[in-house]
């Protein structure tokens, strides 16, 4: 984005297509990532990303800056779109694990890489088994780097509530991992965390 303050760019984008193009360039990757992690499929992620930006284009002239970051507004639309998508599909929002990217690199020994991939798949399964709000909290916090206050805007909760939710989310995630045979989070012998080999 240019040096122009975001609020000015948003005001311009209400009537200037080029300014809208700048906003698009600034946010499209983040929004796509967020949606992709929620649906786990390129075609569906593209479809929903596309719908989101058309919705933004239509609603932007009525957008009023009330102090919350513009990104929170976008994530809220994305959240609603994904929720509707899962409702329409009449299924629990589950993400096909095999489609999701794995973090480990291939520089380590092959057996170590395979072991890590297993752990990462298990971790994805555990994240996927969490309640919708908890899964979303992890994606917004770690995937998008949003603060608790911003996450609160998206989830319709207070900052304090998000803080406690994070604690409960990690406890629930640990339980999910334990049910899958991991006794110490996802690190240690079965770890996915970074190590000297990476």
């Amino acid at each position: 984005m240019s040096d122009e303050p975001e609020s000015t760019l948003i005001e311009r984008a209400k009537s200037d297509p080029d300014a809208f193009g700048e906003l698009y360039e600034h946010y499209v990757d983040r929004i796509y990532n967020y949606i992709y992690y929620r649906v786990g499929n390129v075609d569906e992620a593209e479809e929903l990303t596309s719908r989101l930006f058309y919705r933004v284009l239509k609603a932007l002239p009525r957008y009023v800056d009330r102090g919350a970051p513009f990104a929170s507004w976008l994530y809220r639309i994305a959240h609603n779109l994904v929720a509707n998508f899962h409702r329409d599909q009449a299924r629990r929002p589950s993400v096909p694990i095999d489609d999701l990217p794995l973090a480990s690199t291939s520089r380590a020994a092959p057996e170590r890489v395979a072991e890590r991939h297993d752990t990462e798949r298990t971790l994805w399964q555990a994240i996927n088994a969490l309640h919708e709000d908890r899964r979303q909290l992890l994606l917004l916090k770690f995937g998008d780097g949003l603060s608790n206050a911003q996450i609160g805007e998206v989830l319709g909760r207070t900052e304090g509530a998000v803080k406690s939710l994070y604690h409960r989310t990690l406890l629930a995630l640990r339980e999910e991992m334990e049910q899958r045979g991991y006794t110490r989070g996802a690190d240690g012998a079965n770890g996915t965390g970074t190590s000297e080999e990476d």
């Binding site: 770690f142 990690l170 989070g185 996802a186 240690g188 965390g193």
Partner: peptide
Amino acid sequence: LFALAESTYTLVRAPI
């Protein structure tokens, strides 16, 4: 829980 948070952080930061 710190370890789990770190693993989750690494996993969901994987670039797409």
